[in-house]
């Protein structure tokens, strides 16, 4: 048995465009009941029914974790993506009914920390908004450093600065403002935990610098959701369920397995949590591994694939599903 998550039936109650790229969506339970509380850093997986295609995209919950009336997510429009964010921006209307998962937290605060030092880039701000609400309610000590392309694109920067003037610093790329990371990491009190969420380059930069300055691995936390990428269509045989399926150009392998009615476990749908790891029974071709769950040896072995983000090019692929 896989652990899995349960679903919540919700109604879209508010849609708030924040700037050219980012829009906030708010949900309440369709049956009028209370939503579960959650912990800062949690995400929900939103099911999008787009004609024949069902997409399931994870978004960080950014509402107050203690608020059981409403959940909020912020979606950045990705014009080059596979269409999930475009669907949210262009098709979803107030009053629509949607299905979302129970909250799942793969980026939780280490509650032992003496201080929480947060570094956000762009839309990577969203998990921190919920974490800051949690810390503010429980008296936790934090400091946020938030870099965005411009003042206009720095979603929630004004709100954060207004509520926590002494704990929040904003950096705008277009004004050549940059986080002075070495200076920032130097002199943090023992017991500080560092959190980073943003583009891959930023995460790599922060982790490398922290390691260089002698920060323990256990005190550095990061969340990077990969979005599945489009690619050439390919055919897969699912051995256990005895089905042959076609993975479309803009579909992930996991989505194609689900569309065929085959139950497959997942949590993050972003190549990070390991839950959807699938055994390869046979193949003739090459894998396009994009997850950061399998190690290099496993990727080279041709025995495992993470169907949420990875693809395949070649003649045959047989999976143990």
């Amino acid at each position: 048995m896989s652990a899995g998550t349960d679903k919540l039936a919700v109604t879209v109650t508010n849609i708030v465009p924040l700037n050219d790229l980012v829009t906030r969506f708010e949900f309440q339970r369709s049956d009028g009941g209370e939503l579960p509380t959650f912990s800062g850093g949690a995400h929900t997986v939103v099911e999008m029914r787009d004609g024949d295609i069902t997409r399931l995209n994870p978004y960080s919950l950014m509402s107050d974790p203690m608020d059981q009336s409403t959940y909020a997510i912020s979606v950045r429009r990705d014009d080059a993506g596979r269409g999930g964010s475009l669907f949210m921006h262009n098709r979803v209307r107030v009053g629509d009914r949607m299905v979302i998962s129970y909250p799942v937290n793969l980026f939780s605060l280490d509650l032992r920390a003496r201080k929480h030092l947060m570094i956000a880039g762009g839309i990577g701000i969203t998990p921190f908004i919920a974490q800051i609400k949690q810390l503010a309610a429980t008296g936790g000590r934090f400091e946020l450093h938030y870099a965005a392309r411009s003042a206009a694109l720095a979603s929630y920067a004004d709100e954060l600065t207004a509520h926590h003037p002494n704990n929040v610093s904003i950096y705008h790329d277009d004004q050549a403002q940059a986080i002075d990371l070495v200076h920032l990491l130097d002199g943090q009190p023992l017991g500080t935990h560092l959190y980073v969420c943003g583009p891959k380059g930023m995460i790599d930069w922060v982790r490398a610098k922290a390691a260089d300055l002698g920060w323990p691995r256990e005190a550095v936390h990061y969340e990077e959701f990969l979005a599945p990428q489009s690619g050439k269509p390919f055919e897969v045989k699912l051995a256990l369920s005895n089905k042959v399926i076609e993975v479309g150009e803009h579909q992930s392998l996991l989505e194609a397995i689900e569309a065929a009615g085959v139950d497959a476990p997942y949590l993050c749908r972003g190549g990070a949590c390991g839950q959807c790891e699938t055994d390869v029974i046979g193949y003739d071709g090459k894998f396009i591994h994009r997850d950061h769950w399998l190690d290099d040896e496993e990727k080279a072995s041709g025995k495992k694939i993470m169907p949420c983000v990875s693809r395949f090019e070649g003649k045959t692929l047989v999976l143990d599903r």
Partner: peptide
């Protein structure tokens, strides 16, 4: 452990 780490809200075991 792998199983327990993935137990989610609303789905006790």
């Amino acid at each position: 452990l792998k199983f327990l780490l993935n137990i989610q809200q609303g789905s006790p075991a």
